[in-house]
Amino acid sequence: MPPLFCFQVPAMNACKLHSLAWKFFWISAVTLGGGMAMVPVMQREFVEKQGWLTDDEMVEIIAVTHSLPGVIAVNMAVVVGYRLRGVAGAVASAFSAVLAPFAAIVFVAAGRSAMTGCAALDNAFLGVRAAVTAMILVSAVKLGKGILVSPVAWALASTGFVACALFGVDVTLVILLGALVGIAYIACAAVKRRRE
């Protein structure tokens, strides 16, 4: 199995550092919601327009950034930045990518406290919360189609749901339970390989 494209030695001269930083700044500024919303814009900009990355590299970047801990938008900025300009590129990309979201929320937080106690706003937010509930439910069902493929997966997901929703169990503990099962999978795979 060859090493992943995006982890190969960085192509240091692929682009200028400041244009890389600028690209990440505006990509994160125009993609509402962050994370996966950035992918189509990054694909158009980095692959089609600039030719800094290939389609295959983009696919791998998405896979890798989803398998590592942390905020996806920052993960993507680090991987792409490192691939194109090394450590300096990773630092520049990550900080550029958080600048616009940071500014937006600072303004929101400042404005929010000035508007408390307004009935119209409270009711607007009640509607918004109901809609967010629906959005997350739909996304959970869609995610479930890909994840709930075995009895073990069903058991883990229902355990996690009941533990958190009804008994207030710490979310961290549920994730750690999943990690333990993951380690068991790794052990099984290792045993299987040795037998072959």
């Binding site: 199995m1 060859p2 090493p3 992943l4 982890f7 896979a63 890798v64 398998s67 997350i136 996304s139 959970a140 995610l143 479930g144 994840i147 709930l148 073990v152 997966a153 069903w154 058991a155 883990l156 997901a157 229902s158 355990t159 996690g160 749901f161 009941v162 533990a163 958190c164 929703a165 979310v171 549920v174 994730i175 339970l177 999943g178 990690a179 333990l180 099962v181 993951g182 380690i183 068991a184 999978y185 790794i186 795979a189």
Partner: peptide, 24 residues
Amino acid sequence: VSRSGWLKDLLRGIRPCVLGVIAA
């Protein structure tokens, strides 16, 4: 890190739990 490495197996355990807590 290869495409079919231990990370994939680890996530096979973690993902269903994440789904459960999203449902919660």
